[in-house]
Structures are given as C-alpha cells and as structure tokens.
Amino acid sequence: MVRLWRTPLDLDAVQRPRGKVFFIPARCKGCELCITYCPKNALALSDKLNEKGYHLPEFADPDACVACGLCEMICPEFAVYVEEVTEEAKSDE
C-alpha cells in the first residue's frame, strides 16, 4: 500500500485498478525486459522453460499489478499482454 502524506478526499470513490497478465510461451525469448521494467515488480523469472529452452516470466504477485500495460508495450515478442480486472469479473470468481 502506498503511504500518503494526506488522505485524498475521494479515497473511497477511487478504485485502484487491478490487472491480470497473460503470456504466450511459444513466442517468449527470455529477454527479461518485462520483469526488469515492471514498476510494481509483479513479474518474476520462473523455472519453467518453453520449447526453445528460454526461461519464461511468471505472474508472481497478482495483487501488485495495476494494469499499467508497460510489460505489454515493452515486450518485443508480442508475448505478454494485460487485461484489466473489473469488479464484476472479480465477484464472479
């Protein structure tokens, strides 16, 4: 949780966005850009390998993700994307 120096007036109204990261393992080449530049450190390198032998990233900290989409934009392989998790979807689970 971010520490605030004053409580914002609309703290109750504003919802922190949540995201879910999806991977396409066959395309990943293990460059680790998504892991390095995730501002919330939600991704980590896993032990799993894909068919080409590259270590895949994993969605290690789902609670940290704010669906900023930086991993999706910085992935050179079109192998990562983010979907924002809405309130309805969360209540379905």
Binding site: K29, G30, C31, L33, M73, I74, C75, P76, E77, F78
Partner: peptide, 10 residues
Amino acid sequence: PGCGLGIALN
C-alpha cells in the same frame, strides 16, 4: 532476444 525492433513495431 532483447532486440528493440519488436518494441518499435509494437
């Protein structure tokens, strides 16, 4: 791996 061309294309 690590090439920036994919990012530019993205």
